[in-house]
Amino acid sequence: MNPGSATAIFLDAFLINNFVLAMFLGICPFLGVSGKVKTAGNMGMAVTFVMIVSSLCAFGINKLLVRYDLEFLRLICFIAVIASAVQLVEMTIKKFSPALFRALGIFLPLITTNCAILGLALFQTAREYSLVQSIAFSLGAGAGFSLALLLMAGLREKLDLADLPGVARGAALTLILAGILSLAFMGFAGLGG
């Protein structure tokens, strides 16, 4: 497969270099919101949506900054754009689908400080992706984030019933699970060719 093709970039962000399990982006929501499958699904959806919007914005902004030789403002611009994109998404969802808005609740504003979003914008800039490649990258990253979150939530729902030694309860167990999942995802290496 051609490494620059949209499919290859999608697969790379989705499975091989999964944002959560291989690149450690978005760990906070991954540990915090993975208690229940349903909320995990909603969170994944919201993050994917914000990723696509902010990836498009970041692409445009970067073109503008490079043109006027203002690359040192990149970080400040990106973070401001992401914060406003999240706000915009929040208002749009509230207007068009109040049910979805209620389901997402507090997770929506918190997406601003999700490093997966800023990471996505920074990586696509560093790798000089074109517009199509950027969209494929954000779709793959969003899908990968949702997949990791859903897998984790499913495992944790089962583990609530397990009999564990006291010291391993809570965060430590979640991290061990994440480690095992991450091991499994390493099996995808080489898939892109």
Partner: peptide
């Protein structure tokens, strides 16, 4: 040094 090690 690989990602899983960090979690462990």
């Amino acid at each position: 040094v690989l990602p899983p090690g960090a979690f462990f």
